[in-house]
Design a binder for these strands. Structure first.
Lengths: 196, 196
DNA sequence: TCGTTTTCTGAACGCACGTTCAAAATTTAA
DNA sequence: TTAAATTTTGAACGTGCGTTCAGAAAACGA
């Protein structure tokens, strides 16, 4: 934390501690995720967290940044590569669930943090809804989608996706691929222009 | 708490404290809702809560019971009175938002509690999903609805409704009636048997 | 090798929490 | 009016929390 340029140890410890924080938050909940528990998981003294991140808020902030960056990097390219908005929306949903399959604890921890007491990371949630809304505007412009309220639809889509990590923590055998297909079909019907 | 039959003071205090707990939980979040804050809101000493409810868990339990009972009493009769499953589902959604309009803090507090650290009240959430699922089975039996997975659909509908209290706390001018209509339309399209 | 810098330890501190309980205040009943 | 029962007070206690920091250990550079 002292050096201007990050050393190897610095980078490795930060990554390790962030990962341990994700696991503890996902498994015990944000309320039980104390610095002592996280340090214990990492096999390290409590002071190390303060040393590398300043304080607990710094650690949480690093977790949010890391998870959000990883998730966007995985999903965004897939979505924008789709030829139609309908396929874009489908990909948005399925790639979200794919991310959960690859990183079972990451999204759960992120949602715990966003929901936590103060609204410090409310902006992250708002950004996620805006990202969904972009795809919906795309489909309304091309005429693929009907004239629904994009705010309500985007909020609902995010709520549907964000409900999954909790289900997954209760039943880790949940078939995420099947769940993703079901959700994609559901919102495909909900967004399509009504045919008479 | 001593008397076998509830005193007038006993009942009044219990109701007052439960209401204060709802307000504090809804406004400050479950994490910040300490007994000291709740007692302060009621203009009373901390010991009073322990005296009337045994401990904090007893108070929370009373809040859950009271809110759940009030909500079900308001909504269930309306839903089962509908002639079709599609109208039943619509009523399920709109009566939920009506309840939020009448009791802005109640559902928010209930959701905070259900989401809280331990899964003590996870059964309440599971029950709420089951209630939605019953309406979906109804519609699939009558042939009004398509062949979607009722578990996923019910989870999504509840997630969509449960997302609203948070929106409402961020923008208390939110038009709940319009939001309800939009949601009802969304899930009407999502549940309808596809026409070719 | 040896001095410097980086990293880590673990005890100490103040704070907020839920619970308890003796004593005081209030209400109830005769 | 008076004695018993109910209700309230508020301080005390133990626990777990995040933060701090002097000193020890390890890594680094010459």
């Amino acid at each position: 934390m002292r050096s201007e340029n990050e050393t190897f140890i610095e980078a490795a410890r930060r990554a390790q501690l962030a990962e341990c924080a994700v696991d503890v938050i996902a498994e015990a909940g944000i309320g039980k995720a104390s610095m002592a528990r996280i340090a214990e998981r990492a096999g390290v003294s409590v002071g190390v967290i303060s040393y590398h991140f300043g304080n607990k808020a710094g650690l949480i902030s690093a977790v949010v940044e890391q998870v959000a960056k990883t998730a966007v990097a995985l999903m965004e390219p897939q979505i924008v590569a789709q030829p139609t908005a309908a396929q874009g929306l489908r990909t948005l949903i399925t790639s979200n669930l794919d991310f959960m399959k690859q990183h079972p604890n990451a999204l759960r921890a992120l949602l715990e943090i966003i929901r936590a007491d103060d609204g410090v990371y409310a902006a992250q949630g708002a950004q996620a809804i805006s990202d969904v809304e972009k795809v919906l505007h795309w489909g309304q412009h091309t005429g693929e989608f009907g004239a629904f309220d994009t705010r309500v639809m985007a909020t609902t889509i995010r709520a549907a996706i964000d409900a999954v990590p909790l289900l997954l923590s209760r039943d880790e055998d949940l078939d995420l691929t099947a769940y993703g297909e079901e959700l994609a079909g559901l919102f495909d019907r909900a967004t399509r222009k009504e045919s008479h």
